[in-house]
Computed example of a mutant assay.
Amino acid sequence: MRTVIKNEAKYDEFWVRLRGPREVSDDVDMGAAGPLLKDLRPGDVVTVTLWQDYVVAVARDGRSQETADTPLGEPQLATAVGSALLPAGVFTAYAGGRVFTRARRYGERGLPRLLVVHGKAAFGAMLCAVPATIVGDLTGVPLQMVAWLVLLPAVWWFVRRRELRGRGRHAAPALQDR
């Protein structure tokens, strides 16, 4: 085994060269010097954890260090991307379907205000993925989804409230003209 630790101002390198069965004989990026890599010496016997043909952890004497290939945090990221893209896709399908089926009417009268309101709500739902991802990083994917779903009614309430307030402002001059 060979370890490489380079700590330079703009470039860090933390590698361990593993020798053993074909699945684990490779140079592995450890991501950081600690807690284990800094104490490894050539010839040390280590235990390697594999996940889908990737070395995800190296352990020795009860201490373990994750490698740079550890998929930790990926479920939260995938959930965040999905919860951000889902409202965009649903709104796009909804708006596209409405415009397609009512193209002549919308061409004559313009797009209805309802599409704008739903677009704002979809954008707000996409933004809800950000705080939900923070919750997911702290607690896990199930609570990340709960946080996102709890935020959605708040976004809808906010968008509807702003829309109703905006209508009230624009409706008053129209009543005075009559």
Rank of each mutant, 00 (worst) to 15 (best):
V155E: 01
W51N: 10
G73W: 09
L151E: 05
P21K: 13
L85Q: 08
A132N: 08
M1R: 10
A33N: 10
L152Y: 04
R162S: 06
D44F: 09
R60Y: 03
M30Y: 00
A122L: 02
V99D: 00
R165P: 00
A95K: 10
M1D: 08
V90A: 15
E108C: 09
R2Q: 15
A147V: 14
A32K: 15
V45S: 07
P153E: 00
G89V: 08
E108K: 11
Q65W: 03
A171E: 10
A68S: 11
L36Q: 06
E163V: 01
R161F: 07
R41I: 02
P87D: 05
Y94G: 02
V141I: 13
G96P: 00
V146D: 00
G107Y: 07
R165L: 04
R105F: 15
R2D: 12
V46M: 02
V48W: 04
F123C: 07
T101E: 13
N7V: 14
G110T: 04
V116Y: 03
G89W: 02
R162G: 01
A125S: 15
P75Q: 05
R113K: 12
F158W: 10
R104L: 12
W157E: 07
A68I: 11
V58N: 04
Y54R: 15
E163F: 02
Q76P: 07
R169Y: 00
V16H: 06
I134K: 03
L151F: 15
G168T: 01
F100G: 05
R41M: 06
R113Q: 13
A93S: 09
V135Y: 03
T47F: 01
G119F: 02
L152D: 02
D26R: 12
A80R: 04
A9Q: 12
G110N: 08
P173W: 07
D39A: 07
G110S: 04
I134S: 01
Q76S: 12
G62Y: 11
Q176K: 11
G62M: 09
G43K: 06
P87L: 00
E163P: 00
S83D: 01
R165Y: 00
G34H: 11
L143C: 06
R63F: 13
G119S: 02
Q176T: 14
T47Q: 12
G107S: 11
G168L: 02
V146F: 11
P35E: 11
A9F: 14
L111Y: 06
G73Y: 01
A88H: 05
A93H: 05
R162K: 07
T70D: 11
G166F: 05
A88K: 03
R113A: 11
P75A: 09
V46W: 04
S64E: 13
L149E: 04
D39M: 01
V4H: 10
R178M: 09
R60Q: 09
L86V: 07
A171Q: 11
R22Q: 14
V90I: 14
R169E: 04
R161Y: 03
L175V: 14
F158H: 02
P21G: 14
T49L: 12
A59C: 15
G89Q: 09
A32H: 06
T70S: 13
G73D: 02
A80Q: 08
R169M: 01
F123W: 04
N7H: 14
D44E: 10
L114E: 14
G43S: 09
V116N: 01
Q144I: 12
R109T: 09
Y54W: 10
A95V: 13
R113M: 09
Q65C: 06
V28E: 12
W156Y: 15
W156E: 03
G73S: 06
S25N: 05
A132M: 05
G140E: 02
